[in-house]
Every structure is written in structure tokens, then in C-alpha cells.
């Protein structure tokens, strides 16, 4: 494990802890896309099926279990504990996720390392993760404002993806490891986040500073 990989994983962990902490402090899930969070549950479950077939390391196993359990817990919080059903804002979360699911399934059937259920589901999880943030980003675009929670959360997720890129360079040169599917889908995902931050910067930060006297 190299430093970039560890920093990437820690950023990912931090994003989830920020989300959980803020939900439980504010007792509210306003601004969080239920659809994106459900997609993450699907991503983690389909990717980490190898928990049953292969042991990589204690670190790896614990992280996988944490990601699965925390994602299910977040969906539970949004859906039941701090339900958004009575709120108008939920109508903003109307991204057609069927297209993301169908597209990811199609891509995983075409691009995989082996035509076996586990490998197809693994590839499916990569494609789906690369676009899973879209409902959340659309929701932000519609409301036209991002509160600190969603901004910090998305920033940490973006950081996680950004750290994975030097990690792949490092692994390619140091270990001869190159996972073309993970790299390609990872780059798509990083581009989505950078696009978001570009728009966010243009609309929010610059607008805010130009308003100042």
C-alpha cells in the first residue's frame, strides 16, 4: 500500500463520517440525494461480494464491511429516521437512475475481465460508482446552492478519487499493476467531480466574492 492509496481511502472514510456526523447532529437529511446513497449501497454490495470468496487483508476486509454497513445505515436514516417524505426538496431528487443502472449493466457485460457473475458484478460496480454521484449533483444544480455538508462531503469524495490517480501511477511503475477498468471508470468519476467543483467555484465562490464591496 502506498501513501496515495491510504490518503484516498482515508478521504473516502472521512466523507462518510462527515455525512453521518452531520445527519445525526442536525437530525436532518435535507440536501442529501437518497438516490445517490441507494446507488452506493448497490455499488458496495456488488463490488464486495468477494468478501466471501477471497481474503486480501484485515484492512481490506474491515473497510469493505464498513462501507457496506455505513451505506445501508445512511439510506435507513434518510428513508426512515429523518425521513424527507414530507419535504418538498425530495422532488428535486428526480434523476432517472434507471438509465445509470441500465448503462452500467450494459457496460459491465461488454467490459469485464472474465464473463463470470462475480467479475461482471465487479465491473458493474465500477461503472455505477463512476456515475452514482450524478443524482446528488443534479439536486445541487437544481437548488442552486450547496450547504456546507454537501460541499464538504462531495469535496472529500472528490479528494478520494483524486488520490487514486497518483496511486495508479505509483502501482504501474512500482508493481507493474495496471487495472484498466478501474482506471478508466475512475477517471470518468474524477472528471465528474472536477466538473462539479469548476461549476461550484464559478457560481458560488466567484459570485460571492464579486458581491463584496
Amino acid at each position: 500500500m502506498n501513501i496515495f492509496r491510504i490518503l484516498g481511502d482515508l478521504s473516502h472514510l472521512t466523507s462518510i463520517i462527515i455525512l453521518l456526523h452531520t445527519i445525526n447532529t442536525n437530525k436532518s437529511t435535507t440536501g442529501i440525494s437518497l438516490k445517490t446513497q441507494i446507488l452506493y449501497v448497490i455499488v458496495f454490495i456488488t463490488r464486495y461480494l468477494d468478501l466471501f470468496t477471497k481474503f486480501i487483508s484485515v484492512y481490506n476486509t474491515l473497510m469493505k464491511i464498513f462501507f457496506i454497513i455505513s451505506s445501508v445505515y445512511i439510506v435507513y436514516l434518510i428513508q426512515y429516521k429523518y425521513s424527507q417524505k414530507h419535504m418538498v426538496k425530495q422532488d428535486l431528487d428526480n434523476f432517472k437512475v434507471e438509465y445509470l443502472l441500465a448503462g452500467s449493466l450494459l457496460a459491465s457485460l461488454i467490459f469485464n475481465y472474465k464473463f463470470t457473475p462475480l467479475e461482471i458484478l465487479w465491473s458493474f460496480s465500477l461503472w455505477l460508482e463512476s456515475v452514482a454521484i450524478l443524482p446528488q449533483l443534479m439536486m445541487l444544480t437544481r437548488t442552486g446552492e450547496a450547504d456546507m455538508l454537501t460541499t464538504n462531503y462531495i469535496f472529500c469524495l472528490g479528494l478520494y478519487r483524486a488520490f487514486y490517480i497518483p496511486n495508479w501511477f505509483y502501482r504501474y511503475f512500482a508493481e507493474g499493476h495496471f487495472d484498466k477498468l478501474a482506471v478508466f471508470t475512475g477517471l470518468i468519476q474524477t472528471l465528474l467531480y472536477s466538473d462539479f467543483f469548476y461549476i461550484y467555484y464559478k457560481n458560488v465562490i466567484q459570485a460571492r466574492s464579486s458581491k463584496l464591496p
Binding site: N60, Y113, K114, A182
Partner: peptide, 10 residues
């Protein structure tokens, strides 16, 4: 060596 199928990343 080919470790592409290791899937050892999260």
C-alpha cells in the same frame, strides 16, 4: 506480472 484481476483496491 499481471495483477489486474487482483481487485485489491476499494
Amino acid at each position: 506480472k499481471n495483477t489486474a484481476n487482483a481487485h485489491d483496491e476499494l
